[in-house]
């Protein structure tokens, strides 16, 4: 679906952000793209969407170069950016004027999503709150049935019930021909939704594993005492309790994304070693 080969990119005033970056995303998955501020997530999403051209290397989506912005390709990509702009028109007018560009746009689904998100349809889009604007674009993007849906910080500005609705709707909208990329800092909001998990650091993907692989390789525990150093991957102490990521030696535990993220950012090489062992099995 998305094939990134040997990508290099630099903002002119800064140093190189990506250098020899490669990644492959396959259809049928909701990829969670995690990373600290400045890790390059938004830049990567812009390049995937064709809004930025790489300095060298290539990004192909269904075989087509994204930066060429071929309309046939653009009708298969929908981007919901972190900061939202909506034109001065009503929901009905937006649907009328924009849906014509997306061949599989489903009007019924769009109305159902708007209803589920409780977006007022009688107001001008510019009069909606930030969260409502975001939910409106999410509803539209999901209804387009594009092969690639790119969501940059989709839960920012959403209230608690809307976050829950978001998870349900997105989980139901994925199918084997679609790929969703969800970039976020709010890992708790999309826990149980994203799989595989990609973690970026300084323009590199330092972690790329499925939930299943994570569960097999790692154990996430809350312990009074730290385990043996050979098994320990990462730990955090809070109020006398240790939150631990260790090599899985048969324990059953639910992956804690926040802890996993901190562990990867703290020492990605150590994390790699934990997964190397899994590969040898």
């Amino acid at each position: 679906m998305v094939q990134i080969n040997d990508l290099s990119f630099a903002y002119s005033k800064q140093g190189g952000l990506f250098d020899g970056f490669s990644l492959e995303l396959t259809a049928g998955n909701i990829y969670g793209l995690l990373g600290q501020n400045g890790a390059g997530k938004s830049t990567l999403l812009k390049m995937i969407s064709g809004l930025l051209a790489p300095k060298s290397g290539e990004i192909r989506i269904s075989g087509k170069h994204s930066h060429e912005r071929d309309p046939k390709l653009l009708q298969e990509i929908f981007l919901v950016p972190e900061e939202i702009y909506v034109p001065t028109m009503t929901s009905e007018q937006y649907e009328k004027y924009y849906s014509v560009f997306y061949p599989r746009f489903d009007q019924q689904s769009f109305q159902a999503y708007l209803q589920a998100f409780e977006v007022p349809v009688d107001k001008m889009l510019t009069q909606l709150s930030l969260g409502q604007k975001k939910k409106f674009l999410l509803a539209f993007g999901l209804a387009t049935d594009t092969h690639l849906l790119v969501l940059d910080e989709p839960t920012n500005g959403l209230d608690i019930p809307s976050k829950s609705t978001f998870r349900k709707i997105v989980a139901n909208a994925i199918h084997e021909e679609r790929t969703f990329i969800v970039s976020t800092h709010q890992v708790k909001d999309i826990e149980n939704l994203i799989d595989p998990i990609l973690i970026m650091d300084s323009g590199k993907v330092v972690f790329n594993h499925t939930y299943e692989e994570i569960s097999e390789a790692l154990a996430f525990q809350r312990l009074k005492h730290l385990p043996a150093a050979t098994e320990l991957v990462y730990s955090e102490e809070s109020f006398g309790t240790h939150f631990v990521v260790s090599r899985n030696t048969g324990q059953e535990s639910h992956p804690n994304l926040e802890l996993l993220f901190n562990a990867v950012i703290n020492d990605s090489a150590k994390m790699d070693r934990a997964f190397e062992k899994l590969g040898q099995l």
């Binding site: 064709g50 809004l51 046939k72 653009l74 900061e83 939202i84 702009y85 034109p87 560009f101």
Partner: peptide, 18 residues
């Protein structure tokens, strides 16, 4: 001229020629 508007405008599936 506006980053957010430009993003929205450029993502509309229409070629530069059109």
């Amino acid at each position: 001229g506006n980053k957010l508007k430009a993003q929205h405008y450029l993502m509309v599936p229409v070629s530069a020629l059109e």
